[in-house]
Design a protein around this nucleic acid. Sequence first.
DNA 1: CTGACTGCAAACGTTTTGCACGGTA
DNA 2: TACCGTGCAAAACGTTTGCAGTCAG
Lengths: 137, 137
Amino acid sequence: MLNIAGLLKEKKLTVTPQRVEIVNLLSTNRHINVDELYALLHTNFPSISLATVYKNINTMLESEILSEVQIFNAKNVYELAKEEHSHIVCTSCNEILELPIDLQVIYKEAESKSAYSLKSASLVFSGKCPRCSSSKV
Amino acid sequence: MLNIAGLLKEKKLTVTPQRVEIVNLLSTNRHINVDELYALLHTNFPSISLATVYKNINTMLESEILSEVQIFNAKNVYELAKEEHSHIVCTSCNEILELPIDLQVIYKEAESKSAYSLKSASLVFSGKCPRCSSSKV
DNA sequence: CTGACTGCAAACGTTTTGCACGGTA
DNA sequence: TACCGTGCAAAACGTTTGCAGTCAG
């Protein structure tokens, strides 16, 4: 069970019911975009504003409570922050899968080939999920 | 030397001076965004419209003459399409480097772990280029 | 009590669209 | 000539901002 208030305090953020609910929703719905989040929030906060959702997402991105995943040809989705990992997006149904892939070797290769000092990497695969692969196109 | 008209015809696109110039500019300026492209086009096409730039980029993306690179916290940039490759973006000066990295092993790992059938991958590193690393912050 | 957050409305930047005209094939 | 592309203006879209009122600490 996630201690959401504690998480927010740890990052020196004010604990508001809206923020708690955003984190709560993202803990059970990884990879949803702003509109989906907004729609879900309406259940408990009928008068919540989209601006509040954006402001809180941005605040929590800066505090690294959340992270953002950029999806090709779709709106960014959000997830609770955790160690670096890759994503696979189904081009048919847009389902997103997380994948713990060790990029150590690739990092090394990239650093030696580029002479850059690297901080982070974003690896997103596109493909078809098993369900969409098996169904006729 | 690039046969631009031939490239366009091959993809069954009408050859217009604007399209030729867009491809021409991208052949010497990889990784520029819409605004930069628009500004460069103004030299030879003082009355070109931004809508035309967008329409042509979209058309040529669909025909796979161009490809789009999504840059975190910055506008998308464009390049002439070629084999899959990775990118490194400098977080200080935004310079973009292309890197031919073999993702075969990673693809295999991702496929077996996910059961997805994968089509493509986007790998973008963030870091500091040698110039920005050496200069005082 | 003070500062931070919320909700509303308006503003903003980017991209797309509709349309009349002009160019390509 | 028939169709497609261009340029303009307006619309659409996603996100941010300013502000007055409210809530958290």
